[in-house]
């Protein structure tokens, strides 16, 4: 009655993400071709979506006319200055919260209260405080990047292996040496991954910041296109903005590669 011996069935597959190159690009290409076809054939009306080739033409035009840099340069400056202020202050406050019980008790509730405020709602207030020009834009982006950086930083400081700190203490290292050589490098991975979120929020807030009193800037360009119902320019602006997001993400990945080489 015994059956012939048969191989044990394999049941261990799946649940393991694999690197598939080019699929992401293919999805983009297929989607864009589909929209191109739809807008040309007419089953997507010009009111619904712009023709991708027209968007490309708009981008080329933008580049040739020199307006590209006229819009991108102020936006990049705002993003750089605003998020530099927000991130530096955020790391400083986050480290303080991580190290001092008094700072933790005093500042964590404050940060928790600041975090959920839609920063856009504060823009009119910032205009009064910091002026309608660059000041209010920097302030908006700075505040927007500040809170997530604080939360990421003090979480990262909390997660620094305490045995490393004890080791430092057991060797009689000075307090500042422990912070500089053990706590900060140990918190760096957490701070950098917080930076991804902070800078994405910074890019989102760029559009909001340029709502008030900006003649040039990617956000102003998108808002203008939206109010003119100019879909080609609207999408051209969106393409620039999401390229900016990809670029920032890539830069952080490079930074991680260099600084976190010690991670397995």
């Amino acid at each position: 009655m015994h059956d012939a011996p048969r191989p044990v069935p394999f049941r261990g597959g799946g649940f393991r993400p694999q690197r598939l190159r080019g699929v992401g690009v293919a999805v983009f290409v297929v989607l864009i071709l589909l929209i191109e076809w739809g807008t040309r054939a007419g089953w997507i009306s010009s009111l619904t979506l712009p023709r991708p080739s027209d968007v490309v033409a708009t981008l080329v035009q933008l580049w040739k006319s020199g307006l590209f840099f006229q819009h991108v340069t102020p936006s990049l400056t705002r993003l750089a200055v605003g998020s530099a202020m927000g991130v530096l202050a955020g790391v400083a406050v986050g480290v303080m919260i991580g190290l001092f019980s008094l700072a933790r008790a005093g500042l964590v509730p404050l940060v928790a209260a600041l975090f959920p405020i839609p920063k856009i709602a504060l823009l009119p207030l910032f205009v009064i405080w910091f002026g309608i020009d660059e000041g209010s834009k920097y302030a908006l982006i700075a505040l927007g990047t500040f809170t997530p950086t604080v939360v990421a930083t003090f979480g990262a400081v909390d997660n620094v292996d305490r045995t490393l700190v004890r080791m430092g203490q057991s060797f009689g290292l000075r307090w500042w040496s422990i912070v500089r050589k053990i706590v900060l490098p140990g918190a760096l991975p957490g701070i950098l991954s917080g930076l991804r979120i902070s800078l994405s929020i910074g890019i989102i807030l760029l559009v909001a910041a340029e709502m008030l009193g900006a003649q040039y800037g990617i956000g102003a360009y998108i808002l203008e296109a939206g109010s003119l119902y100019d879909l080609e320019r609207l999408f051209a602006g969106v393409v620039i903005l999401s390229s900016l997001g990809v670029l920032v993400s890539w830069l952080i990945a490079q930074l991680e590669k260099r600084l976190l080489i010690w991670r397995s």
Binding site: I128, M211, L212, Q215, E224
Partner: peptide, 21 residues
């Protein structure tokens, strides 16, 4: 003139009153 977009009439009024525009 330097055109300053402020999205809403309320914001324009505020900016005018405070001398921002």
């Amino acid at each position: 003139l330097k055109y300053t977009p402020l999205q809403k009439t309320g914001a324009v009024i505020g900016a005018l009153k405070s001398g921002q525009i």
